[in-house]
Amino acid sequence: MNLFVQAVTWLFDPANWGGPDGLGVRLAEHLGYSALVLAIAAVLGVPLGYLVGHTGRGRNLVVLLSGAARALPSLGLVTLLALWLGLGLPAPVIALVILALPPILAGAYAGVDAVPRPITDAAKAQGMSPGQVLLKVEAPLGLGLLMGGVRSATLQVVATVMLAAYVGAGGLGRPLFLGLKTQDYPMMLGASLVTIALALVLDVVLAGFQRWAGRGR
């Protein structure tokens, strides 16, 4: 327990939060990278998932991809891309988009796919075009399932952004790997506790949002 006291002492020392290497900057980087990755994955994944759900084509591919993504080790992907693209942000961002895409794709697809046929038929009978059916009926009704996919993608991304620091980018992984190198366990533990707290807060917030999005279903 003494180790936790040391880590918390390190965390509450204002000197560790300020400055260009401070936890404040690292936390902001961590959130910034995560937001960037999720935005790219959503821009690519949501329309594609809607298309698959709406047309029913490529269904097996989506299921296969979300299974394969679970087996793909994130560290291998990050290091391989870093070797090809060099140190810095591009490699972890591309690796993370690859990891975040399948759950978002699956969520968007499942949301549209779960809308009962009579509802889409009724929408069509009222004269809606296929685009209107998708945007005004299927998309709102599938929002809860889409948010479920976004939630699991977010958790995975926030956890894996830690590895960005391993290939020369910033984020909360920075103090963790610095502590590992200099055998400063309180620093490692402090950085870990901040990341765990961040992930738990995000999970609770997104779970609430998921329930709100899925209301009335």
Binding site: V158, A159, L176, Y185, S192, I196, A199, D203, V204
Partner: peptide, 24 residues
Amino acid sequence: TGLLYAVPSLPLFVMLPAILGTGL
């Protein structure tokens, strides 16, 4: 268990030694 699954893996690997008394 849902919350437990939300805990990132690398921070958990780092935190457990402080609880279990094992080496990193």
